[in-house]
């Protein structure tokens, strides 16, 4: 009887999680995949004679990829990621190293101040920054104009992508910094001792001891940032109202949202969602492979 209780126990403990996981992860994903291979045809002028579904092969994917704006939005996220992710991770690393160096005063205060934006939802961060971007309201635009005669435009087609990058950097740098600090704290003290005995300055110590040892944290934060970049939605969706440069397909997610809820084309939207997830997977794995190989 005891043995059977031991056999049952893990399943009882796993059941709530697994049931919810099936319901909110596995089923939606399977459903998205099956939708993406489905063709829905409406009979009659307004579909009043019923609808018929059939297997569409890769027609929805063809439609999604033939949509120049959707493909362009993925390309835009590549550009965004190649610039923003390295800047953010570098900034987080430098800040973490400075805060953990003996030279920094009040590290607790700075750590808290940098982490604070992580608690501000992306929507609220975007509302805040959008007020700082809009001419007439923004003190930054005002000051640049009246003091230096500069005409700043944060919302033009050439700049708005980097204005979004700024919001993302503001939100997540402190969070990434905290993960890096956690790993820095796990470096044994005698390694620093040995470095000092060898006469290594703070820069040498950072380059030869700290950076190699915080590598797992850097890989983790980079992978999460790549996934996050492909998911960008709230920032461009909100800035649409103040920047005509942002169209309804500016990012992949915005594109899928528009396809689903403005055009009511769920099958193509499902194909887009699957494509976004695939690209995220592919990028994460490629990055993990690259970093694994170079560490050998």
């Amino acid at each position: 009887m005891k043995a059977s209780a031991e056999k049952r126990a893990p399943w009882i403990l796993l059941a709530p999680f697994l049931i919810l996981f099936l319901f909110t992860f596995v089923m939606p994903i399977l459903m998205a995949i099956s939708q993406s291979f489905t063709m829905i045809e409406r009979e009659g002028l307004f579909g009043e004679e019923g609808i018929s579904t059939s297997f569409a092969w890769f027609e929805n994917y063809r439609l999604a990829l033939a949509d120049g704006a959707f493909v362009a939005s993925i390309g835009r996220m590549f550009l965004f990621g190649i610039v923003q992710v390295p800047i953010m991770i570098t900034l987080a690393t430098v800040l973490a190293l400075m805060l953990e160096s003996a030279s920094a005063r009040w590290p607790g205060f700075f750590r808290a101040a940098y982490f604070m934006p992580y608690g501000v939802p992306g929507v609220l961060a975007t509302i805040l920054w959008s007020f700082l971007y809009v001419p007439g309201l923004s003190p930054i635009v005002d000051t640049a104009h009246s003091w230096f005669g500069l005409e700043l435009d944060f919302l033009s087609s050439g700049t708005v992508l980097w204005s979004i990058a700024n919001i993302v950097t503001w939100s997540y740098t402190g969070y990434n910094m905290l993960i890096i600090i956690a790993q820095l704290k796990s470096i044994p003290g005698d390694l620093y001792e040995a470095a000092r005995v060898d006469g290594a300055g703070p820069l040498r110590t950072a380059l030869t001891i700290q950076l190699p040892l915080i590598r797992p944290a850097l890989v983790l934060t980079t992978v999460f940032s790549i996934i996050g970049t492909l998911q960008l939605f709230a920032e461009p969706q909100l800035l649409q109202q103040v920047s005509p440069a942002i169209d309804s397909q500016y990012t992949p997610n915005l594109s899928a949202y528009t396809t689903a809820f403005q055009y009511n084309d769920y099958t193509v939207a499902a194909a887009q969602a699957v494509l976004i997830a695939l690209v995220a997977f592919l990028l994460s794995f490629t990055f993990l492979r690259l970093t694994n190989r170079s560490s050998r």
Partner: peptide, 23 residues
């Protein structure tokens, strides 16, 4: 089970939101 759930970590949250709505 662990492997499948780990895969779930990498699935973008917004990718499941749309099919969840349909469901």
């Amino acid at each position: 089970i662990f492997g499948i759930v780990l895969g779930g970590v990498l699935v973008p949250g917004t990718a499941t939101a749309l099919p969840l709505f349909l469901l």
